[in-house]
């Protein structure tokens, strides 16, 4: 049973405390992102992708799945998007990036840059798609979706590369620094 839980969480080398810290910092980052979004709109980076690609994937790709769960929990704690939609997309990113890391070095800046841009754009499009599909009335969000996705992709790509070395120095995220 315990082995099963550890398997779902990614690996037995990821302590729950580290995931708790990651979830906490993700929550704060998403709160800040919601606050900044009121002024800067879609130009605010996706903190989930930044943490997942800029921190976890760079230092410990094996922990991507469990980190995706922790980051999703952080977003669900402060956001109003459908929880399943949030879990689905961050787990998908974890899966996609884990596959990518088999062929490319996740520590290289170009991989983080492209990954950050691609994944954050997909997050925006996915959440818009889910919201439209759940609505009984056509909301017309798809018309503006590409420009929102592009803005978020650009800012997230930059943030993923620039903040990546700093993230592991945040208190509580030392687990990721030790292995970097």
């Amino acid at each position: 049973m315990a082995a099963g839980i550890e398997s779902v969480l990614g690996s037995r080398r990821t302590p729950l405390l580290s995931l708790g810290w990651l979830a906490l910092w993700a929550t704060l980052a998403f709160t800040l992102s919601g606050l900044l979004g009121q002024s800067f709109g879609a130009w605010v980076p996706d903190p989930g992708v930044v943490l997942l690609i800029g921190l976890v994937a760079r230092t410990r790709p094996a922990g991507l799945w469990s980190a995706a769960l922790a980051i999703s929990a952080g977003r669900v704690a402060v956001g109003i998007e459908a929880p399943l939609a949030v879990f689905a997309i961050y787990l998908a990113i974890a899966g996609a990036h884990a596959s990518l890391c088999r062929f490319a070095d996740g520590q290289r800046a170009i991989v983080r840059l492209v990954g950050g841009a691609l994944y954050s754009g997909v997050v925006v499009l996915w959440l818009i798609g889910v919201h439209e599909s759940r609505s009984s009335v056509a909301l017309g969000l798809f018309e503006r979706a590409p420009q929102w996705a592009l803005a978020t992709a650009v800012s997230t790509a930059i943030a993923t590369v620039c903040l990546s070395p700093l993230l592991a120095r945040i208190p509580g995220l030392g687990e990721w620094r030790e292995r970097s």
């Binding site: 998403f30 919601g34 009121q38 402060v78 998007e81 978020t152």
Partner: peptide, 15 residues
């Protein structure tokens, strides 16, 4: 409120 706004800039919502 528990949040300042939704992380999706095109949504308007709080917890």
């Amino acid at each position: 409120q528990l949040s300042a706004g939704d992380p999706s800039s095109w949504r308007g919502g709080v917890k």
